[in-house]
């Protein structure tokens, strides 16, 4: 399929992608797109097909079906034209282990005609502290930062980051996120896979939720959170387990005449959903006082991306 249906500015267009390993469909009719100057998150549980999808976009795997276009080009057939314009950070790093960090970055930079300034890039990502350490001896977070530097050193127009925050401490994570935002502001199309909600919520302009090899929801974070049931404000209460919150919901409904529901999704954690305003909160605390129950935490808000994600992908472990 040609890319005629791609909207202007689309840097990555995936249509009906299929990839099968040993008779099992790892990616099964997946559609997604990413635009220049935006961060696109591919969010999904482990084994959902995220890595296989980006590897098809990187030209590392050939699709069994569907089309993939990056900057209008086929990542496999047009690989030589595409490689100078695409930066890649693999999930398993892919860094040679026997060389020093600075040497590794210099080597990747040598593949490009006008790479980024290595001093500036190293300083931003805090690589100077371990520039002379061999890659083998780096911590997981240090390797991640070095791999990110290698992905962006060639001034790519599209960057694929496969779980860029895995194993990072909070300081490193914020350094990585700042760089990702800066890339976006420079007009780069950033595609990242993640299963970290905070990463998707803080960074992504567009989120594709992937499960079982398909995109099951797409949109901005506010769109995803507003869609579907439970979009009205929810009071989240943490207290001792076993409270009769159904009685609370009845009381709240009597107060304001609205429909209220309450549940205890895990022991001691309650969600009370309705038109939560100041009066409802006063009723709630009065009710708690009557029972002589001290709330450990009360928050009011809409659903989080994590709620949406768990609703979409289920709560069972895999």
């Amino acid at each position: 399929m040609p890319t005629t249906d791609a909207p202007p500015g689309a840097a990555v267009v995936v249509r009906g992608l299929r990839k099968t390993y040993g008779g099992r469909d790892v990616v099964d009719g997946l559609d997604l797109q990413a635009t220049a100057g935006a961060v696109t998150a591919v969010l999904g549980p482990n084994g959902a097909g995220k890595t296989t999808t980006v590897e098809c976009c990187e030209g590392l795997r050939s699709p069994d079906g569907g089309t993939v276009r990056v900057l209008g080009l086929d990542p496999v057939a047009d690989a030589a034209r595409l490689r100078p314009r695409v930066g890649v950070m693999l999930q398993d790093g892919g860094l040679p282990t026997g060389v020093r960090a600075a040497e590794m970055l210099r080597h990747v930079a040598a593949m490009y005609a006008a790479p980024r300034d290595l001093h500036e890039l190293s300083a931003r990502l805090g690589l100077d502290a371990f520039a002379r350490t061999t890659v083998r001896r780096l911590s997981g977070g240090q390797r991640q930062r070095l791999a990110l530097a290698a992905a962006v050193v060639g001034r790519p127009e599209v960057v694929f980051l496969d779980e860029p925050s895995a194993g990072l401490d909070p300081q490193s994570r914020h350094a990585v996120w700042d760089l990702v935002r800066e890339l976006r502001d420079e007009g780069v199309a950033v595609v990242l896979t993640t299963h970290l909600m905070a990463e998707a919520e803080d960074l992504a302009d567009l989120v594709h939720v992937v499960d079982h090899g398909r995109v099951i929801a797409s949109g901005s974070v506010p769109e995803l959170v507003a869609a579907g049931p439970g979009s009205s404000p929810t009071i989240r209460l943490e207290a001792r387990p076993g409270l009769d919150v159904a009685a609370l919901a009845t009381r709240l409904a009597e107060d304001d005449g609205d429909a209220w529901t309450a549940a205890e999704p895990s022991p001691g954690v309650y969600t009370v959903t309705g038109d939560a305003g100041p009066a409802a909160l006063a009723t709630l605390t009065a009710w708690l006082a009557e029972q002589d129950v001290l709330a450990r935490r009360v928050t009011v808000g809409r659903r989080t991306l994590e709620d949406v994600f768990l609703d979409l992908t289920g709560r069972h472990l895999r």
Binding site: G59, T97, A147
Partner: peptide, 18 residues
């Protein structure tokens, strides 16, 4: 063999080196 296991071959294949 170790470069292949560690993903080095794949990473370098995505750079202009190919």
């Amino acid at each position: 063999a170790f470069d292949r296991r560690n993903g080095v071959l794949r990473l370098l294949a995505t750079t202009p080196l190919g």
